[in-house]
Write a protein that binds this DNA or RNA. Sequence first.
DNA 1: TCTGGGGTCCTAGGACCC
DNA 2: TCTGGGGTCCTAGGACCC
Length: 421
Amino acid sequence: MTADDGQRRPVALVDVRCMFVSVERVIDPQLVGQPVIVLSNNDGCAVSRSDEAKALGVGMGDPWFQLRERPNMATLVALSSNYAEYGAFSSRFHTTISTLALASETYSVDEAFVTLPTAEPAAAAVAIQDRVRQWTGLPTAAGIATTKTLAKVAQRRAKQLGDALCDLSTWSPAQTEELLAATPVEDVWGIGSRLRTGLASLGVRTARDLANADAGVLRRRWSVVLERTARELAGVPCMPVGFTPRDRQQLMYSRMLGATVDSRAEMRSVLAQYAAAAARRLRAHGLQAALAQVWVSSSRFRDQALHHTTAVALDPPTADPLALIEATRALLPHLREGHPYNRAGILLTGLSPAGAQPTLWQPPNPARERLAAAVDQISDRFGRHSIGYGPAGLGPRRWDMKRERLSPAGTTRWDQLLTVR
DNA sequence: TCTGGGGTCCTAGGACCC
DNA sequence: TCTGGGGTCCTAGGACCC
């Protein structure tokens, strides 16, 4: 990530097309041309769809248990998600882009904003896309414009037409306005369903309406966020490319349970396992937390769903799994015995670099740190069911996440490495 | 039976201070 | 019945993103 020099250079948004499915296709080329979807955790719903799957009528977020009952889905290939694999491809995607872009910014796992040269920006974007395809195997769609928000509009247009690139920098103002007029306001980056409803009451229904709206009114009635979006649609850059990312503010670990849990005793081991996982992430980032928020809830699709949450101060701030496990116990008395809970999580905030706080009263405990590191290593080497902390217990649990349709991990597991003949 | 898991930013409002 | 004018810090919650 490099800093922008402030010049009005064109901006491109480069986006991997149906990222998770594309990764699966790199690993198994036989999936190319077939209708393929990747399912969310617990094999819950479709989170990535190939064009062929979209053509079959698979919607984003459609639940798998409903999809597989549909009559025309015989040819559909559904795969469990493999986030370790997608993460590895994502980092290669962003690294590849940074080798050619003047400045680039990682926006999400599958999207990057890049600053392009003023002369022939489209050629520069195509070069980036070609290199991404060559080095990672991933197909991309890109949009070029004067602002990030317009680049998003352009990229959406490219996808709609099935093109690899849409370059608004070569369009006349009238052509751009026509595109904005044809873009529903809720398809603009930063406009969700709530804002759509509110804006409609002002008669703002398209991207063009928003670009022409009074910025002061938008700021007063909503916020500077919406004001910036409107200005960007009008071609005024308000969001620089290549900002330095802020320090992480929070770290969350939450999961749906593979089966409902209705007793405090069993939930105690769920929370202990989640706390240990959260602690591990915390240590991986070299952080410690000052506050743990723990929650459990039952399905939002059922009547009388329950949600319990509690916050526990961690004093001194810590990344110690045993301390976090202890903190989660505070939630147990709130639970209703016999109620079918299906989700739990832990949110850690008040993050700081490990060891940054004064430790005058409670000096660091090297034994506890070595213990956590040793558990991590054993778990890596012998599997996550080989070792656990007291309340978290050992072995597979009935409430473990379902991943019944997992494909081989082509690049992140030695024992499943691709074979080239 | 079965419906994801992370994040960010902004604002309002309360506690507290002078 | 009247009962300042700020400022800071923190948290909860809304809204959005992929």
